[in-house]
Design a protein around this nucleic acid. Structure first.
Length: 277
DNA sequence: GCATTACCCTGAAAGC
DNA sequence: TGCTTTCAGGGTAATG
């Protein structure tokens, strides 16, 4: 499940292969993604030369020398890859864009189709999407940290729910929410309003640390995630609690527990992350 | 305005 | 062994 660090890893791996390349005639599958992509819609990027790859939170986009571009959300199982044109297309390949080097093509593969590839004619559409997202902990300023602490202190939602809110922390998903709460020694079940500001600050800083460290390890691969060249991440070797139900807590040795919050798994240590404040 | 629930979809795992 | 059922999960829309 790609979160901010995984998307950043994809962006970094794809940039050298895409920047400077001209995009050819796109191919689009019949099956609908979250937002249906059509061949006609994709035409706006045909003939455009890639200038840069951007990312904020889990949203990635391909900018061109002109106004049009492509926004990509990987959802749960999406992969954006540059592949040899001759290589067989993986099952669930939904969008293909040939590159002008004559050898490679950009492919979007997504079994669960929770992701999307959205072409845009003008940059305004991209700006509109970005306006819906909060600051990205990978690029936090001191002001962003202060603001996030205030927002958390004001909410009656659980810390876990609040941390997953993309309007507060763009790019945080289930893995890094669990990890940051563990490092901050806070129970995911506590309400923001019930936690002191210094502790909330610790949580916000832990989120930024956890994401940065995951980028250094090129993301977390459980089942699906690969970078733009098919490589695996290795951050799964550095996790403390996520998907470790029953294993000993790295701090106190008690077994890691799994609970369900908002239909999502949360992993925690009951001793290190007590419910009482 | 906020919280909760349902939904989209497939593959893997569990159950039979 | 092989078929059927259940579950996971990001983001959003609908509902309470």
């Amino acid at each position: 499940m790609p979160e901010g660090p995984e998307v950043e890893t994809v962006r970094r791996s794809l940039a050298p292969l895409l920047v400077g390349r001209e995009l050819g005639k796109p191919w689009v599958s019949e099956l609908k993604l979250r937002t249906p992509t059509t061949s006609r819609g994709m035409k706006v990027v045909q003939g455009q030369r890639v200038r840069a790859l951007g990312r904020h939170g889990k949203l990635m986009w391909i900018e061109t020398d002109g106004e049009p571009g492509l926004m990509v959300r990987l959802g749960m199982s999406g992969k954006l890859l540059v592949s040899d044109r001759g290589a067989p297309r993986a099952k669930h390949t939904h969008v293909v864009v040939p590159l002008d080097d004559g050898e490679n093509e950009l492919r979007y593969v997504d079994p669960r189709r929770f992701g999307e590839v959205v072409p845009y004619k003008a940059r305004e559409k991209l700006e509109l999407e970005l306006a819906r997202l909060g600051p990205d902990p990978l690029a936090f300023t001191d002001d962003d940290v202060d603001h996030a602490v205030k927002k958390l202190k004001a909410t009656k939602r659980s810390l876990k729910d609040a941390v997953l809110d993309q309007r507060l922390f763009a790019g945080v998903g289930n893995i890094y929410a669990c990890e940051a709460l563990f490092l901050a020694k806070l129970s995911p079940e506590l309400r923001g309003v019930d936690v002191s500001k210094p502790k909330l600050r610790k949580l916000v800083l832990a989120l930024a640390d956890v994401l940065k460290s995951a980028v250094e390890h090129r993301g977390t691969t459980f089942s699906d995630f690969v970078d733009g060249q098919g490589g695996y991440g290795e951050n799964q070797d550095f996790l403390h609690v996520f998907q470790k139900e029953g294993e000993p807590c790295p701090t106190c040795g008690r077994p890691i527990r799994r609970i369900v919050q908002g239909a999502r798994s949360t992993f925690l240590c009951r001793r290190c992350q007590p419910k009482r404040r």
